[in-house]
Amino acid sequence: MNQTIIKYYYGDYGDKEMPSGAGQHSPVANEWPLWEVFIRSKQGLDHKHVGSLHAADARMAIENARDVYTRRQEGVSIWVVESKYIHASNPDDAESFYEPANDKVYRHPTFYDLPDELTHM
């Protein structure tokens, strides 16, 4: 007697998530786009990047961010932006981008003579 045992993985998708590609796995067609999430905390003045999530559209992204990233009162304001709209610098450019700043100490405001009365600098 033949018995088929199917092991279900996260989300119980069954055929879609069968191991070894036996299912019809097509991530691009099935997955919602990725969004980057920025949260402003109560005390904070700026929105800080906290992570990313999947959502079908902006409205769902904000609600998902509310559910995933503000459960412990982390924030009072949420920004989301679809990850594909973020352009990043190339790590290969690091040498030409950042190293030239290494020997330019005069760009730091460390060459001023401060009056003695000034204590909190």
Partner: peptide, 15 residues
């Protein structure tokens, strides 16, 4: 919980 259609909604329904 642990069976949501996607991670984000799993958390939403659990909340």
């Amino acid at each position: 919980t642990g069976h949501g259609p996607v991670l984000e909604q799993d958390i939403a329904i659990t909340n």
